[in-house]
C-alpha cells in the first residue's frame, strides 16, 4: 500500500476511535438519566389524562397489552382504586398535516373521556400546533365527552358536519385529532370488558 494512503487511513482511524470513545462515554454517563426522564415524561402525560383523585395506584407501573383492530399491541395503563379499575390511558394516533400526531387518551370506566393530550406532532407552528394545551385550550374541550355524547356520527369537525371547531387556516390537524379520539373511544368500547375487569 502507498505509505501516504496508510497515513491518511491511520489519521482518520485515530480520530474515529478518539471521538467514538468520547460519544460512547457520554452515552454511558447519560443513559440512566435519559431513561429516567422518559419514565418521568410518561408519568407526566399520564397525570394529565388521569385525574389523581380517581386512583390509588401508579398507572405508569400498571399496564396491560391489548390488541387493537389492526392487530397491533396497545399498552394500556390502568388507574385503580381499592382494586377496581376506574380509568385507563393509552396512546392513540391520527394523521395530521405534518405527519403522524401521537396523543394519549384517558378514559373513565364508564366510557367518558378523562383527558387527552398531544404528545408528539409536527404540525405547522401557529396553525396546527394549537392542539398543544400550552398554545390553546382546544384539546381540553373533549374532557367528559363520550361516544354517545355527542352522537357517534357527530364526532367530526364542523366542516365535515360534526360538532368540533376546526382552527382558522387549519382543518387537517383537528380532523386528524377528532378522528383519532373517535377511534380511541371505539377501541375502548370494543375491549371494555377486558380493560376494566377487576384484577
Amino acid at each position: 500500500m502507498n505509505p501516504r494512503t496508510l497515513i491518511h487511513a491511520l489519521v482518520l482511524g485515530a480520530f474515529c476511535l478518539g471521538f467514538g470513545i468520547l460519544v460512547a462515554t457520554t452515552n454511558l454517563f447519560t443513559k440512566d438519566e435519559i431513561s429516567l426522564r422518559a419514565v418521568e415524561d410518561l408519568q407526566t402525560s399520564l397525570t394529565q389524562v388521569i385525574p389523581p383523585g380517581i386512583h390509588d395506584n401508579n398507572p405508569a407501573k400498571d399496564s396491560v397489552l391489548v390488541k387493537n383492530d389492526a392487530g397491533k399491541d396497545v399498552t394500556v395503563y390502568r388507574a385503580t382504586k381499592d382494586g377496581k379499575v376506574t380509568g385507563v390511558a393509552y396512546e392513540i394516533s391520527g394523521a395530521g398535516y405534518g405527519g403522524e400526531i401521537r396523543l394519549i387518551l384517558g378514559v373513565a370506566a364508564d366510557g367518558r373521556i378523562l383527558g387527552v393530550r398531544a404528545t408528539e406532532f409536527k404540525e405547522t407552528p401557529g396553525l396546527g400546533d394549537r392542539i398543544d394545551p400550552a398554545k390553546s385550550d382546544w384539546i381540553t374541550r373533549f374532557t367528559s365527552l363520550s361516544l354517545a355524547d355527542p352522537p357517534v356520527d357527530k364526532w367530526k369537525v364542523k366542516k365535515d358536519g360534526g360538532v368540533f371547531d376546526q382552527f382558522s387556516g387549519a382543518t387537517i390537524t383537528p380532523r386528524g385529532v377528532v378522528g383519532a379520539i373517535k377511534v380511541g373511544l371505539e377501541f375502548f368500547a370494543a375491549h371494555k370488558a377486558q380493560l376494566v375487569e377487576d384484577k
Binding site: F19, L22, V23, T26, T30, R37
Partner: peptide
C-alpha cells in the same frame, strides 16, 4: 464532519439527560 457530529451528539445526549 466527525468532530462536528460528535459534538452534536454530546450536546444532544447531555441536554436530554440534564
Amino acid at each position: 464532519i466527525l468532530i462536528i457530529a460528535a459534538m452534536v451528539t454530546v450536546v444532544d445526549l447531555s441536554l436530554n439527560a440534564w
